[in-house]
């Protein structure tokens, strides 16, 4: 009887987590705030349901399997949330007027500024080297050049996407 009550409470709690996620998904205005709502049934709801299952069965043999299941979910859901959030930030699927603080914006701006500096400063270096040594100079920029634009190329695309 007591286990029945515990199981009932745990399962209704888990179901309410799912309901909260559903309402949040339907009502929230923004991808990031919807992500905030969507994580409830994935972690806490699953935990409550697995606890209900364990209490209902009453055997310790079941516990390692349930812990494995929950830990697996616990490891994978932050990774997928990170990927979705990053893709959403880069493709500007967020409402900036709803943000109180955007720490990543400063980082992106600083990276873009530093990249612009780094893009300009290597230019004088080979030019300064050119008069000193006549022969091997055409070789040196050819070696340096493919490496230099490639490294900023990745961040450059990212920064341009954010700025546009």
């Amino acid at each position: 009887m007591a286990t029945d009550v515990v199981v009932a409470v745990l399962m209704i709690g888990g179901a309410l987590m799912s309901l909260a996620a559903g309402i949040g998904l339907a009502r929230f205005p923004d991808l990031l705030s919807r992500m905030h709502a969507a994580t409830k049934p994935q972690v806490l709801g699953l935990l409550l349901f697995l606890l209900a299952l364990a209490v209902e069965n009453g055997t310790w043999l079941l516990v390692p399997v349930l812990v494995l299941c929950w830990v697996f979910q616990l490891l994978t859901s932050p990774v997928s949330a990170h990927m979705v959030g990053r893709a959403g930030y880069r493709t500007r699927h967020l409402r900036r007027d709803l943000l109180t603080l955007d720490e990543l914006d400063d980082v992106v701006a600083r990276a873009a500024a530093g990249e612009a500096e780094a893009h300009e400063s290597p230019q004088p270096d080979p030019a300064a080297g050119t008069p000193a040594i006549g022969g091997p100079v055409p070789v040196d920029p050819a070696v340096v050049d493919p490496a230099a634009p490639r490294a900023p190329g990745g961040t450059g695309r990212r920064a341009r996407r954010d700025r546009a």
Binding site: M11, S18, A38, A52, G88
Partner: peptide, 23 residues
């Protein structure tokens, strides 16, 4: 991305339903 998020929640709800079935 909204659709992916919503389908993730749908999968979580399906998992919950599986546990309900087991209980």
């Amino acid at each position: 991305l909204d659709r992916v998020l919503a389908l993730d929640v749908v999968l979580a709800i399906i998992g919950a339903a599986l546990v309900v079935n087991m209980v």
